[in-house]
């Protein structure tokens, strides 16, 4: 059995304000625990050694999926399972269901949270690719107020985000785009493994040209999980196979994957292109304006 290092304190937060107060009290060695499916294994392997755990599982204010204006708002404590099952998310973006289907396994999805996934900021996090593709944003709260950060500015690097000490990510926002088609593609060595590479895309086709599109890539060393040049190339052009291929090639060009046991860099680069192309094709097909 893997045994974690000593933990000085464990508290259950009663509100977001209380969670922030507790974070301030314990300082930089405190960690929030939501689903615990990254943090607890890391603690058991002694890769993480927080002094105190602040449990936010009771914070019902963070558990809803709703529409506000022209945005969909997903609370930080929404579980992967709820994203997978949400008719609202599926109606606007099928990519949510496609992406969640290939995240870990049912046991992890039942507990793991959206906020936890974003804050863990694993370079192969599927939701990061999705969020970057849809150009979502996150809301971060501290004792002085809240601020909204675009997803494409949220990460400083692997496992590093804009969420600082004494702060909590409360919700994730996704703009609604009528007529958007979307799709998610992932290659993994086995169900439940981290992605070798994954790509999520949306495309809005209007009057035979791509009016808007987004491409998000995980596990392939794309800065902020995106390659804007590929999107810019495609916008305003007809969604022909040739143009999609060119965009996919540009997306791969913008990636900087590293070799590991999941695969060599040349293969991952190839996948970035192949999966982008496949996701774009399906996004175009399902765009209502197509």
């Amino acid at each position: 059995m893997q045994t974690p290092a000593p933990l000085a304190d464990y508290v259950r937060a009663t509100s977001v304000a209380d969670a922030i107060a507790q974070l301030e009290k314990y300082g930089e060695d405190a960690r929030l625990v939501a689903g615990g499916h990254s943090l607890i294994p890391m603690m058991r392997l002694r890769l993480a050694r927080p002094e105190a755990l602040i449990d936010i599982n009771d914070l019902d204010e963070l558990k809803s999926i709703k529409v506000e204006g022209n945005e969909i708002v997903v609370g930080a404590m929404v579980r992967h399972r709820e994203v997978l099952d949400s008719p609202l998310l599926f109606e606007h973006y099928p990519i949510f269901r496609e992406c969640e289907k290939v995240i870990a396994d049912p046991v992890v999805r039942n507990r793991g949270s959206v906020g936890g996934s974003y804050c863990q900021a694993d370079p192969s996090e599927d939701l990061s690719a999705l969020g970057s593709a849809l150009r979502g944003s996150v809301v971060i709260q501290n004792s002085t107020g809240t601020r909204t950060v675009p997803m494409r500015e949220f990460h400083f690097g692997p496992y590093m985000t804009q969420v600082g000490d004494g702060e909590i990510l409360t919700e994730v926002r996704f703009p609604i785009r009528p007529g958007a088609g979307s799709a998610y593609e992932k290659v993994e060595r086995r169900v439940g493994d981290w992605a070798v590479a994954s790509v999520g895309t949306f495309v809005v086709v209007k009057n035979g040209v791509v009016e808007d599109c987004g491409i998000g890539l995980a596990a392939v060393g794309a800065e902020h999980f995106c390659v804007p040049a590929a999107e810019e190339f495609l916008i305003g052009k007809a969604p022909t196979e040739e143009n999609l291929e060119q965009a996919a090639a540009m997306a791969a060009e913008g990636c900087n994957p590293s070799s590991d046991q999941r695969g060599p860099a040349d293969y991952k680069k190839h996948l970035a292109k192949e999966l982008t192309l496949r996701a774009l094709r399906r996004s175009v097909q399902s765009s209502q304006g197509a």
Binding site: V187, R189, R262, G263, P264, Y267
Partner: peptide, 8 residues
């Protein structure tokens, strides 16, 4: 025969 190995 991982996906990477097959592709390679």
């Amino acid at each position: 025969l991982t996906p990477a190995n097959v592709w390679r």
